[in-house]
Design a binder for these strands. Structure first.
Lengths: 199, 199
DNA sequence: ACTACCAAACCGACCAGTCGGTTTTCAAGT
DNA sequence: ACTTGAAAACCGACTGGTCGGTTTGGTAGT
């Protein structure tokens, strides 16, 4: 492949600044020029690494947002007592989430809401990312059932889907209200729903 | 006020076409020119009725999206057995919702996710609209408690907030997946949560 | 004559993307 | 070790086009 460290570094810088800009303003309202100013790079550099604004957006999604999301959940979804481990994750989230994160919301969901009806490429990539999260959650629930920690009667697909939806909804509601208390109230709802899934 | 029927009709046409465009593309990506083309009116007409794109957006929110939302929920939130009436509403929603609605999502939530971090005027107006929905729901739950239909131990604020969040999340997830089944699975989750609130 | 309403030409700002040219990198040749 | 040459990386002025908004001018109703 390519062993040029400097080049990779610049590509990385473009990705990360683009990720910040897109998170703040949305994809369509993000200006290429702004990204270039913030990175200190030129148009030539950007269009050398990415063939268009759209492919830059796809790369941000797949190389920044999605890995971040997976990392955040990996630990809580690897146990065989998902009700406890997820509840714990949500509780620490309630306490430790930054004001900035509340203001800006979930990168994946932001992009999903903005781009799904407009660009099929975005829609499918985001759908894949969320689907992976959902299926990891589903696997954790099934593991919990096997271990006797989760009610064996529940439909893991349906429950996992609902949990994902309600968490995204919670983040979205708190983002609009810019209110920690709202975020806490919503996640408490998720937690109490989770607790109802115990065997 | 003003009794000129033609003028009001043009204003109304601008509002409704703008509402469609914003729902399809988002506020920022909506082009004034496109709205004018679709209405057959001119810039002079638009800027006579609205002082800027922003105030047009505010008007769409307050005069189109918010009333639509209120109307949709009014009936289900006026009973004293909210668990039953809301579940019923959600079930008919699962069956009767159009493909177009799934593709485009909830107008209020779309605008909330796009504009909340960017424009404080939008954020507050949307927050007010959602807050009203939430408090109507909260009142219905309290009424249900008084009538002995809802568990008196629940915190109506927390529960109402969570329900709003999970419904918005459900619509958002289905919009991204463009999948009726996903929408159904999510709303089933809401319903089963609701059923757990009975006295 | 006055006001409400609307049309159309017009404006500067900004947009994503292009392109000719320059610099940096690195391996191959000697 | 040194040169060379070509490709990869990068630069920034420029283009065509669209944006929201303004201005000017007119028309219909009262």
């Amino acid at each position: 492949m390519n062993a040029n460290a400097l080049s990779d570094e610049n590509r990385r810088k473009l990705l990360e600044v683009a990720a910040e800009e897109i998170l703040e303003k949305g994809f369509q309202a993000t200006s290429i020029s702004d990204i270039l100013t913030k990175t200190g790079l030129s148009k030539g550099a950007l269009y050398h690494h990415f063939s268009s604004k759209l492919t830059l957006g796809y790369a941000v999604l797949e190389e920044v947002y999605q890995p971040d999301c997976i990392n955040q959940w990996a630990l809580a979804l690897s146990t065989s007592d998902p009700v406890s481990s997820i509840s714990e994750l949500l509780r620490t989230e309630i306490e430790e989430i930054s004001d900035e994160s509340i203001r800006l919301g979930c990168p994946l969901n932001n992009l999903a809401q903005e781009m799904s009806p407009i660009d099929e490429g975005f829609r499918q990539r985001i759908s894949r990312a969320i689907n992976r999260w959902r299926s990891d959650l589903e696997a954790a629930l099934a593991r919990g059932q096997k271990a006797g920690n989760v009610d064996p009667a529940i439909d893991t697909f349906q429950v996992a889907t609902f949990i994902v939806a309600s968490i995204e909804g919670s983040i979205g509601l708190a983002k609009n209200g810019q209110d920690r208390a709202l975020f806490g109230a919503c996640l408490e709802g998720v937690i109490s729903y989770l607790e109802g899934l115990r065997a």
